[in-house]
Amino acid sequence: MSILVFVEGDQGKIKNSSREAVSYAAAMEQSPVVALALGSFQATELETLGTNGADKVLHASSAQLDQGIIQAYASVWAQALEQSDADTLVLAKSALGDAVAARVSVLSNASIGSNVVELPDTSDGFKVKRSIYSGKAFAHMKLNSDRRILTLNKNAIELKTDGESAQVEQFNPELNQQDFKVTITSTDRATGEILLPEADIVVSGGRGLKGPENWHLIEDLALALGAATSCSKPVSDMEWRPHHEHVGQTGLKVSPSLYIAIGISGAIQHLAGVNSSKVIVVINKDPEAPFFKAADYGIVGDAFEVVPKLTAAINSSK
């Protein structure tokens, strides 16, 4: 039985989270690992999935699939599962991937394990460990169907980079016009920045920054670190920053290797979005800020003084 991995692109490049998903499938040591890519991609980009552990890449290159139409994607994944004789579908958690996976689980009679944080235990059935209660706990689940779908949290596995090149095969699914009732009329996407859910390092700002005009402090540090930027809920509510940067209970949940919180007090709702991060650094002028209790490293100090010094220290340490 093969493993199918859905890979997602961003501006023509395979997302790192999708490369992690391929690495995860390879580490399951059940072959072959077949990656599935939809829409326009360069063959040379797809071949590189081999380095992450893919044996083969199925490419459905129809331009109709350039946009992420949830229903159409679900139908194509279900056909790929059928044709590749796969019993497991793996993908990185994402806004699109989650929405599609749910439909595929119905179409393909699959059990679904979402927000999986480590490799499955297949010693007795198929068991996964998943994050629940917004990162405050884990559940060990048994997936009972003959087919299953796993959506992975970031950092569920170390990225594999030492594989060979993969062969790319054209895949021609049936596209049913009924699945294209949804029209995407425009896409508004910040270009050139590192995608927040993809980022290994995240620099986040809160009300302590005092206003959107001071965001260069956050951005300069992020640039020095190669990090994405994010913000707390009040900052997004006041429209200092766009909503897609809001992390927390009702925003995005991130699990980077390093999360640096600046001028964020650390309300429990904020922690719910970040407590799966490997290492947390908190910079706050209030020594009583609750965030320090959840931090690995802390600095009590004024962001306007500490952050530029930290940016300079990072730059000079390179």
Binding site: A95, R189, L195
Partner: peptide, 12 residues
Amino acid sequence: REIEGGKELVEV
């Protein structure tokens, strides 16, 4: 609809 890094406008 929110997407990574922004949003898209959708009609259904």
